[in-house]
């Protein structure tokens, strides 16, 4: 099979070097970066066009005041950011995004992990269990939030009807912040925990059985095996699960939009929902841009923090050590 990278690199090489031997030398010395450029180049370019550009545009609008569609934007330095941290509507929304996001991620991971441990047992009919738990993941948000609303209706809601039948006063879910957050979290868990469990399961099954056998020979009990073999083994998948979970959870807004609409009294409003309303209904692109940057920064800081704290040892290890010497 012809080496594709040679062919594609030839034209460029002939300009820089005298002949194919020069190119071959150049290629051998910089093989990795060339292949990386060939693979990542088009991807990054594509990303630039499709989302990098519009996103940069949106972020830059954070430095502008753009009140009306027909007016031209006015540069206002950091006014929008200052406003963000002065107006409780914004910083409280950010705070809610963070703590609801952390709560959802944490619970999701914990429950998902316990479920994955059980799914990892050799049970009869485990394929059926996996499918059952995964079902909510494939449902559409619009349809299932409607179902939650039907459950929570105060006049003919399924839950209130049950409460009434048991002889208690029905609960007015929509007028309580606590219940609002509770149902947002319950919905997010219902929707997310199955996917998380399957992810953990993949991680658990990726742990080499030989390691367990070795631990058994060393006389480790169940708990010790879990602590010394399972946990280190699932670390890579844990990093992925935490990061995707957090990114997803901090950006939740559909459940808020469809279940509580930010109510009561705007106290379940999360930041992405605010951005959406700013951008489209108030046409306040400046605040939408600034809020996005802040939210992005928060998620980014969390991620970097996580990498520094927990992922440093195995993420930073270089799998290719010693390779060059052998070539």
């Amino acid at each position: 099979m012809a080496n594709e990278w040679d062919v594609s690199g030839n034209a460029a090489a002939s300009r820089t070097f005298d002949g194919p031997t020069g190119w071959r030398k150049f290629y051998n010395n910089h093989r990795d970066v060339i292949i990386a450029a060939i693979i990542l180049g088009p991807m990054l370019f594509w990303w630039m066009v499709v989302s990098g550009f519009p996103t940069a545009f949106g972020f830059l609008l954070g430095f502008f005041k753009w009140g009306e569609i027909t007016a031209s934007p006015k540069f206002v330095w950091f006014d929008n950011y200052i406003h963000f941290f002065r107006d409780p509507q914004y910083y409280m929304a950010l705070w809610r995004s963070i703590w609801i996001g952390l709560l959802v991620t944490g619970l999701n991971m914990l429950i998902g992990f316990l479920i994955a441990l059980l799914m990892n047992l050799s049970l009869f009919g485990k394929a059926i269990y996996r499918t059952m738990w995964y079902v909510p993941v494939v449902t559409s948000v619009v349809a299932t939030t409607q179902i939650f609303n039907i459950f929570l209706d105060i006049n003919n809601g399924v839950i209130d009807n049950l409460i009434k039948r048991l002889g208690y006063e029905p609960i007015l879910w929509q007028y309580s912040v606590g219940w609002g957050v509770f149902w947002i979290v319950v919905y997010s868990l219902w929707k997310g925990v199955g996917g998380m469990a399957l992810l953990w399961l993949a991680g658990l099954q990726a742990v080499d059985p030989i390691l367990y056998e070795a631990a058994e020979i060393d006389g480790a009990n169940r708990l010790q095996k879990f602590w010394n073999v399972t946990l280190p083994g699932i670390k890579p998948i844990a990093t992925y699960a935490i990061i995707t979970g957090l990114i997803g959870a901090v950006q939740i807004y559909e459940q808020v939009m469809f279940i509580t609409l930010g109510g009561p009294y705007g106290q379940t409003e999360v930041l992405v929902f605010r951005i959406l309303r700013d951008g489209f209904f108030d046409f306040n692109m400046g605040m939408a841009g600034a809020s996005s940057v802040v939210l992005f920064a928060v998620v980014f800081i969390f991620t970097v923090f996580y990498f520094r704290m927990f992922a440093s040892d195995n993420e930073k290890s270089d799998p290719r050590r010693g390779r060059r010497k052998r070539q």
């Binding site: 989302s51 519009p54 996103t55 951008g279 996005s292 992005f296």
Partner: peptide, 12 residues
């Protein structure tokens, strides 16, 4: 890039 809230890019 995966952490950017998608809504901000919709109008652009």
């Amino acid at each position: 890039t995966a952490m950017i809230p998608g809504v901000v890019a919709l109008i652009p």
